[in-house]
Design a protein around this nucleic acid. Structure first.
Lengths: 129, 129
DNA sequence: ATCAATACTTACTATTGGTGACCATTAACC
DNA sequence: GGTTAATGGTCACCAATAGTAAGTATTGAT
């Protein structure tokens, strides 16, 4: 996908997620994602091994975690360091860029936790109509 | 889906998105979503008609917008007001709960726009390895 | 009679998410 | 020396979700 090679923001203007042609939208799609948010939050505490992330992100499958981490690595938000040991050890760590995501994504996770009673109440009200 | 009827956070503890059984995770999944983020951002300026939101969220299809707005309505984040006119007019507006999401979600959209050069550079570097 | 306008549905296809089995490597154990 | 355990994956497959394109209902204007 090389959209960014054919799109530049209008002169004097900025990138805009609302425009379907703007590459920032694909970036939004990546970060506005449940697993991404949880992974970034969990990596707050420093580098973690694959298995530890898998345990922390309760319920994620190996394949999906692999995909998520690879996407984050490709977009420059995490680094992957693999040690030539047996059994293998692979550590993932947030990059400086990834760390700039922690505020927004932690806020999202907190929102979900803090407002869940209101959300559940709204859902019940909606479903009982 | 009635997970919330069978799950309560451990006594003295809080809801936790990291637990796969916690209903706050389903709430996170809803808000950590590209279209949700864009819709909430766009509804900042007050109530908007369906067609206006569709135009603002460049590239979204009617079905996906309907689904997105219905989910947001169900979770208590937007209200839907339909006027008995022909052709029909339907307005969507953020609830107070929905407005508490604007900060986090606007931050996400801004992040995507502000950091897109770094992300694109990282992608190119990754793909050229 | 036809058309335009709006907010949807509906049926379909494509993409993504998720599951369970399997793999390669080597140290430790019997 | 064969077996087991441990880790970080991959693979083939099915399910769920996202997205597309066409159709629907209503009625005022032409």
């Amino acid at each position: 996908m090389t959209q960014h090679k054919t799109y530049t923001p209008p002169p004097g203007q900025n990138w805009n997620v609302l425009s379907s042609q703007c590459p920032s939208r694909t970036s939004l799609a990546r970060i506005a994602n449940k697993w991404t948010a949880m992974a970034v939050v969990v990596l707050d505490d420093g580098p973690l091994r694959f298995g530890d992330i898998r345990t922390a992100l309760d319920g994620i499958s190996g394949k999906v975690l692999t995909d998520t981490l690879r996407d984050l690595e490709r977009d420059g938000m995490v680094t992957r360091r693999s040690y030539p040991e047996v059994p293998p050890r692979v550590e993932y760590e947030l990059t400086p860029l990834g760390r700039t995501l922690q505020g927004p994504l932690t806020a999202l996770c907190r929102w979900a936790e803090e407002h869940i009673p209101e959300v559940l109440a709204a859902r019940d009200a909606y479903d009982d109509r």
